[in-house]
Write a protein that binds this DNA or RNA. Structure first.
Length: 882
RNA sequence: GCCGGGGUGGCGAAAUGGCAGACGCUACGGACUUAAAAUCCGUUGACCGCAAGGUCGUGUGGGUUCGACUCCCACCCUCGGCACCA
């Protein structure tokens, strides 16, 4: 993306030609990227400023021109009246010329536009095709940028004129509350309406002033500006009720959105409300909030009256219509639909969709961009340059004065040409294209970079496009990424691509920022701020591999990375450790490396070797998966873990047995291969060190495959919680059943120590993860369930070594204790049932329903289950036999 | 003002609703060294305890859940975007 401002600025400042400056930079950066080992396919390098590329910018322009997608119209630019030049937004910041301090004015000049508005609907609609792969924050900003909004147009007839004022509203349901019509200062109808009016001069003067004020307001967020207006003295007719409304002109109505005019409904729009307050226009409430079926009162409120005091702000929500003729009593949403239909039937309006997106102005009064391929002929007018004459070449040299005018204007060989139609002398367009034009489609050119007859061959592009993964900063969330989507749709309609969207997955990469010296600000590195870090210096100090690894390890890619060199030593150390292992172990692993070792199937692996192999295969699986998700930082962490595991698996053992050697070789080879994407140079060296010299380069080696069988854990250490707090751990087989896991938790000694004799206990086993033993007091638990009585398990613990169980009920609000079951000895099957049965009976006798009691004895424990009403879960009293 | 992202040790950061702090940096202690650097070993969320161990802890307050950094509600702070879009 080599066209644009910086090259031209350098030309102005240093008297160097943009082309030379640009080519120098490209060469420099190419060198840096290569030194970093970034493996692009350099045969596909392209640059926007080279004629074989910008020729196609021009070609696309011509195609759009043919189809009416490129057109010219007058449009405002920032203009310094003293220097008579166009200023960029930055140059006119604060409303004054950056050089001479003269107040900036808006000036209308002819400019070229691309009709992005034609694709407004698709730009919203097709979001659903990409939303799975794009960050929500980007999609949100794109939706806002397009700014689709549904509403209605309404035409208001102007009294005593044969004219209509059209307004757009999203709240047609409030139309009975309209108390004025407000036009933009730039409204084209304004002069006509004022003809012959005594107010003409005053109003036009106001309009001029309002326009001027707007011009000065540049991007330096004009503070909440006061709403100013003037009554034109004209009246408009509300088509819904025939009411006459005064027509005003005001500074807060934008010409280039909707219809350039609004109906003012002070009661239900905050801006209209503010305006009405200032100019004491009536405020009439026609929407009432829906409150418990009650409908609010409607009221005509004039400022100063009691009612207007009540209303501190507009009520902008939906509600119920009041004082709205036949629509009174309807809900906003129904009314909106019906009223739009009503207007359509009577032909004074109807439902409509508007968009906030504007056509894309691509004219730049600059040198360093693709010339717009247009010729102006005194005879034939605006004539497109024929395709065969492309590219329209930028001249090699120009004068850079920095006055703000296109330097092309002062290159006669460029400007003077002949008309392609009639052959008479003619002049070229001297504006060049916005650089976003280049960036809108450059990646398509990668697929077919040297094509001389087309921008790219559709058949070749079809293999690559849509892009699987696009990476860019979120500063491009709207401009570039909207234009690229627009361009894709244009190309689709030209038959060049099939898909609606150019990019399936988008990663918005975070900036690498650095402190700006002398401040506390962290800003993206840049030359002008002097906070850059030279990659070459990093490479010199730490090497390309450690630099790469550190940057990828330090934070996830979408985070901002605040630059700091503390930490990069860690990457150096890590690589050095792996390096040392490779060269220290290569002799012990020699047979394995030569492929002469015993095959794995015939080897007996020790526990440690099996553990190492497990780690190896787990790491392969994790790294492979994390690459797919672009979780590169955790990816590096995984490699470090494998390296740590290898270091623990020490070298003497590796030399001791073929099985250990096998495991070590497997681990270290996998590690080296997986290291390659991060640190390619050192990995390649290590690969050679592992005995692959003369064979395939590591860059061409096969990515290791994870064997799930080997990655599987042989046993698991399962944490045991009591009431959510970690208390113990048990070692289990990975396929242990829930029941066994539960039993194991109950029998754990540490767990038992948290269980009081009068508690009841249950457990939530989560296979592979943990067990949570829930211990509660019986009374709490029963209370929660609304039982009338409290059970105590008393005397000896419910099932004890002497196997005596005693249940005691304590009635609520009564201290009397009632023993319901005593001396139950669950010994044989029959006894169990009778014991359980006895408890059930007693419970029922006391009016406690829905309780199922079972009693079971297992090898080393006894359990009483009591099933509470409405619960599937068992509450257990449990005690292991001693 | 509206919209969006984010708030976890001294720092960068991990954690399909299931052991908070993986991995690394820093710092501290130790080994090696005449010494330093490098390297290696150990400690490193806070608090209590000689220890075993315990208590607290993911911005704040509530909620859901056997269980919440993770889900829900309200609020605070912060970064970013938009800012008269009818």
């Amino acid at each position: 993306d080599s066209f644009g401002q910086p090259a031209e600025q350098a030309a102005i400042k240093r008297g160097i030609q943009p082309r030379d400056w640009t080519e120098e930079n490209i060469a420099h950066m190419r060198g840096q990227l290569q030194r970093l080992g970034v493996s692009y396919d350099w045969r596909r390098e392209i640059a926007a400023h080279r004629p074989d590329f910008y020729k196609w910018d021009q070609w696309f322009f011509l195609k759009m021109f043919e189809r009416g997608l490129a057109y010219k119209r007058k449009s405002a630019v920032n203009w310094c009246p003293k220097e008579e030049t166009v200023l960029s937004n930055e140059q006119s910041s604060g409303g004054i010329c950056w050089r001479c301090g003269t107040p900036v004015v808006k000036r209308e000049i002819e400019q070229w536009f691309l009709r992005t508005t034609k694709y407004a609907e698709e730009l919203v609609e097709h979001i659903k095709e990409i939303e799975a792969g794009w960050p929500e924050k980007v999609l949100k900003r794109q939706r806002d940028w397009v700014g689709r909004s549904e509403g209605a147009y309404i035409d208001f007839a102007v009294k005593q004129h044969d004219e209509k004022v059209r307004v757009f509203t999203t709240r047609i349901d409030t139309i009975f509350g309209a108390t004025a019509i407000v036009l933009s200062a730039e409204h084209p109808l304004l002069p006509k309406l004022l003809e012959g009016s005594s107010l003409k001069d005053d109003v036009m003067q106001f309009a001029e002033k309002a326009k001027g004020a707007r011009a000065i307001k540049t991007e330096d967020a004009a503070e909440e500006e006061e709403k100013l207006g003037i009554n034109t003295g004209q009246l408009a007719v509300n088509p819904f009720n025939g009411e006459l409304l005064p027509i005003w002109v005001a500074n807060y109505v934008l010409m280039d959105y909707g219809a350039g005019a609004v109906m003012s409904v002070p009661a239900h729009d905050q801006r209209d409300f503010d305006f009405a307050h200032k100019y004491t226009l009536p405020i009439r409430q026609v929407i009432a909030p829906i409150v418990h079926g009650q409908q609010g009162e409607s009221a005509d409120v004039t400022p100063g009256s009691d009612q207007s005091m009540d209303m501190k702000a507009a009520f902008t929500e939906y509600g119920v219509l009041v004082s709205s003729g036949e629509w009174s009593g309807k809900l906003s949403h129904d009314a909106m639909r019906e009223m739009a239909d009503y207007a359509a039937e009577r032909k004074f309006g109807g439902g409509a969709v508007t968009y906030r997106i504007r056509d894309w102005g691509i004219s730049r009064q600059r040198f360093w961009g693709a010339p717009i391929p247009i010729v102006y002929c005194g005879n034939c007018g605006t004539v497109p340059v024929p395709e065969k004459d492309l590219p329209v070449m930028l001249p090699n040299k120009a004068e850079f004065t920095g006055t703000g005018e296109s330097p092309l204007k002062n290159v006669p060989e460029f400007v003077n040409t002949v008309c392609p139609k009639c052959g008479r002398p003619a002049k070229r367009e001297t504006d060049t294209m916005d650089t976003f034009v280049d960036s809108s489609w450059y990646f398509f050119r990668y697929t077919d970079p040297r094509n001389e007859t087309m921008p790219f061959d559709p058949a070749i592009a079809a293999k690559w496009i849509p892009v699987d993964q696009y990476i860019g900063g979120d500063s491009h969330a709207v401009m570039h990424l909207i234009y690229a989507r627009f361009w894709n749709k244009v190309m689709r309609d030209l038959g060049l691509v099939k898909s609606n969207e150019p990019v399936k997955r988008l990663l918005t990469q975070g900036m690498v920022t650095n402190r700006v010296e002398g401040t506390n600000d962290w800003k993206a590195m840049s030359k002008s701020l002097g906070n850059g870090v030279d990659p070459d210096e990093m490479i010199r100090a730490y090497g390309a591999d450690a630099t790469r690894m550190f940057v990828l390890f330090a934070a996830p890619p979408e985070n901002e990375l605040r630059w700091s060199e503390t930490g990069i030593e860690g990457a150096v150390r890590f690589l050095r450790r792996v390096w040392t292992m490779v060269y220290r172990w290569r002799d012990q692993l020699r047979d394995q490396l030569k492929g002469q070792g015993t095959p794995a199937a015939k080897l007996e692996f020790s526990d440690a070797a099996r553990a190492l192999r497990r780690k190896t295969h787990q790491t392969i699986a994790r790294v492979t998966d994390d690459f797919e998700k672009l979780d590169l930082n955790t990816n590096v962490a995984a490699l470090m873990e494998l390296s740590n595991a290898l270091a623990e698996f020490n070298v003497d053992r590796a030399s001791a047995s073929p099985a250990d050697a096998f495991a070590a070789r497997e681990a270290i080879e996998a590690l080296v291969v997986m290291l390659a994407p991060f640190s390619p140079h050192v990995a390649e060296e290590m690969w050679e060190g592992l005995g692959h010299e003369g064979g395939l380069l590591l860059a061409a080696a096969v990515w290791p495959m994870a064997d799930p069988e080997l990655a599987r854990k042989e046993e698991l250490e399962i944490p045991v919680q009591v009431n959510g707090k970690l208390r113990s751990r048990v070692i289990v087989a990975p396929d242990i059943s829930e029941a066994d896991l539960r039993a194991l938790a109950f029998s754990d000694e540490k767990v038992s120590s948290f269980i009081d004799r009068n508690d009841y206990v249950t457990a939530i086993p989560v296979p592979q993860r943990l067990v949570n033993v829930v211990v509660k007091r019986w009374d709490e638990r029963l209370d929660e369930h609304g039982f009338d009585a409290i059970i105590w398990a008393s005397g000896e613990h419910p099932v004890t070594s002497n196997r005596k169980i005693t249940f005691i009920f304590k009635e609520k609000g009564n201290d009397k204790r009632v023993t319901i079951a005593e001396d139950l000895i669950p010994n044989k099957a029959g006894d169990q049932y009778s014991a359980a049965g006895q408890v059930s009976q007693e419970l029922e006798a006391r009016g406690i329903q829905d309780v199922v009691v079972t009693l079971e004895t297992e090898l080393n424990r006894s359990v009483i289950d009591i099933k509470m009403k409405g619960e599937s879960e068992l509450i257990r009293v449990i005690k292991p036999y001693r």
